[in-house]
Design a protein around this nucleic acid. Structure first.
Lengths: 117, 117
DNA sequence: CAATTATTTCCATTATTCTGGAAATATGGA
DNA sequence: TCCATATTTCCAGAATAATGGAAATAATTG
């Protein structure tokens, strides 16, 4: 992931309907959601949502799979990891002491059962 | 941080010059950088950069402090943490198993000396 | 094959953002 | 006070993004 990819990913998430759709898909987990259900949930016209999903997909944050008449969307977690990795990359090289508190916050939120060394 | 704050923060970072300025400031650490030096480093006119810095500041990602004739900018790490926290929040509630690999990647990158339990 | 359902593509309008010249503000120094 | 430096604000033109109606594509059903 270079800075241009990062701008593309951030731009994709930097819009209300798209961030909402993304969060919906994250919550949906491995099951994902079909386009129509996302549009219904967000109360956005199908064609408008379709354009938004296309942006998220181009950015590598979601992927799609046809399922009969519907198209199912799921989060592309490798893309999400790449973006988050890019964002913390410089931070940690430049000053590791600002990264520790960041993880302190992330760890319990992410993995409640895990223990820090 | 609610979804609207997140859209504002993501929008702030979702532009080449702004993301570049932000990364520069992250690398600069606690010392920060004055506006003119940032503009020079990025080869962007002062007034254009000023507008960009204003967007980053409004989003709570950086803050400024006058220093004589110059104005020094620094990263507002609480804002960065809030954004990253928001992004992983749903992910981890919905499906913790996708969060672990995310941390696996972040931990060594962030805190090379630390050991996982 | 015709009808139905699900979604996307095309396209034009509207809205927002980006950009930088010129003027304004703020500080420090002679 | 006058001048130089650093930065911001004002403003308007150019570029980009968002939106949704209408038509096109794709799959299933009778």
């Amino acid at each position: 992931m270079d800075i241009n990819d990062a701008v593309a990913s951030l731009s994709a998430l930097a819009q209300y309907s798209r961030l909402s759709a993304f969060r919906l898909l994250v919550r949906a987990g491995g099951e994902g959601m079909v386009a129509g259900d996302i549009a219904r949930a967000l109360q956005v016209p199908n064609n408008t949502l379709s354009a938004h999903l296309s942006v998220l997909q181009q950015a590598g944050l979601i992927y799609s799979e046809r399922e009969g008449r519907s198209i199912r969307y799921r989060v592309e977690f490798s893309g999400v990891r790449a973006l988050l990795g890019f964002l913390v990359e410089d931070c940690c090289q430049g000053s590791p002491e600002v990264c520790a508190p960041l993880l302190e916050q992330l760890l319990p939120e992410c993995c409640p059962g895990e223990v820090r060394a």
